[in-house]
Nucleic acid binder design. Structure first.
Lengths: 224, 224
DNA sequence: CTTCAATTATCAGAATTTTCATAATATAAC
DNA sequence: GTTATATTATGAAAATTCTGATAATTGAAG
């Protein structure tokens, strides 16, 4: 992706640039309001990282400018810790994400990846089946709009099926996808059965209208 | 890799072939002793999967032939369940691995991958530091030749360091490597500290002469 | 329709991992 | 060298995942 970082702290700017270049992105930078507007007028960036506190103008103004003029540019707001106000304002003004300082570069990478995934699917990308919505970016599941908290394995299993609704999924394939390479010598799927059981229970109790059907001798299938 | 499968059951042969081709290998097959010997005389395979029960001669004879004539070909013996005798004989005759029937194709893939890794490092590949030896294929650690049982996370952490002895490893980098992408918003490394603590304890109690040194503000370093 | 073997489900307990509260230690500022 | 602050360590509790024993269900065979 082509990314513009708008940040006035030189050392932070440098490490962010290095990290994102390492991730394979094309990175440009601006350290103040006017040069940011300048760059935004020249290129169509896929994503802009905007620090709120900037010399010569608030980052929120830049956000406003981007939303007016660069429809396809995703914006991630960066701002001091605990500044909930910035967050609220930023998201109201149409930021795609919000990253409080201080943050880890790994976290930055993850947010960028998330923005990237979403941009490739124009907008907020989620999987839907019946009244269940699963968001792979935030790891959240809702049933009729209501949050359904799932444990990690349960979520991974459900996510796998919701990417292939109605499709028969072999037990081995599922195990490999969810548990990865720690599965070895597998003749025993108790760990899978246990997780399936708990997932089913939570789905049912939450009123979900989808169901994990066992297919004797093969695996499972998600039925709406 | 170029793989020769020597197996007389047609349906098993077919599914094995499909699975290994899907993994990107070049696969050839033989269903009996003479045609196996024939193929082995023509090509230098990276790996041969040899069923023990074959029409026209035992797979063990083929194993013997390969060990005599094809020095670089790895051999994985395949044989009926619980036939411990075959396993012992096979490994004595120089097989590289042993896979009891029935097996899962995922397991077969894993064994092949393991053979592949090992072949790329000519022979049994392990990491060593001081009196500690770590085998990434079998997930086993020994100290002065004595087994040191480690839990999964502990093993993963140690493995990461033993691949980079003496090298400073950043906490974030380590966390990402061992825990994968479930690490998000990480400002809190308690989970890491806890595992490091347990790993250190086991290393120390086992008499290992290596040590995980904390580097204030950054991470850890493995010191022999 | 029974019977049987194989597969899947369930529950509870065990093992592992993570979190919490708190202590110890390292670095920097004085 | 003290003091203050951030970082790392520790033990115990909590949460999660896995395992074992056992029950229920499925599909096939008689």
């Amino acid at each position: 992706m082509k990314i513009l970082i708008i940040e006035d702290d030189p050392s932070l700017l440098e490490s962010m640039t290095a990290a994102l270049k390492k991730d394979g992105h094309v990175v440009e930078t601006a350290s103040d309001y006017p040069s940011a507007i300048d760059r935004l007028g020249v290129y169509a960036y896929d994503c802009a990282l905007v620090d709120i506190m900037l010399p010569g103008g608030s980052g929120l103004d830049i956000l406003g400018y981007i939303r007016e003029n660069c429809r396809k540019t995703n914006v991630i707001i960066i701002s001091a810790k605990d500044s909930l106000d910035d967050k609220v304002k930023g998201l109201e003004l149409g930021a795609d994400d919000y990253l409080p300082k201080p943050f880890h570069l790994a976290e930055l990478s993850a947010r960028i990846r998330s923005v990237y995934r979403r941009s490739r699917n124009d907008g907020d990308f989620t999987y839907r089946a019946g009244n269940v919505v699963l968001d792979p970016d935030t790891n959240k599941v809702t049933v009729d709009g209501k949050d359904l908290p799932l444990l990690k394995k349960e979520f991974d299993i459900l996510a796998y099926f919701m990417q292939r609704p109605g499709h028969l999924v072999d037990k081995e394939v599922l195990a490999e996808a969810v548990w990865g390479d720690h599965i070895d010598q597998t003749d025993n799927f108790q760990f899978l059965y246990a997780q399936v059981k708990n997932l089913r229970k939570k789905l049912q109790e939450s009123g979900a209208d989808i169901e994990l059907k066992a297919v004797y001798g093969f695996g499972y299938k998600l039925k709406v």
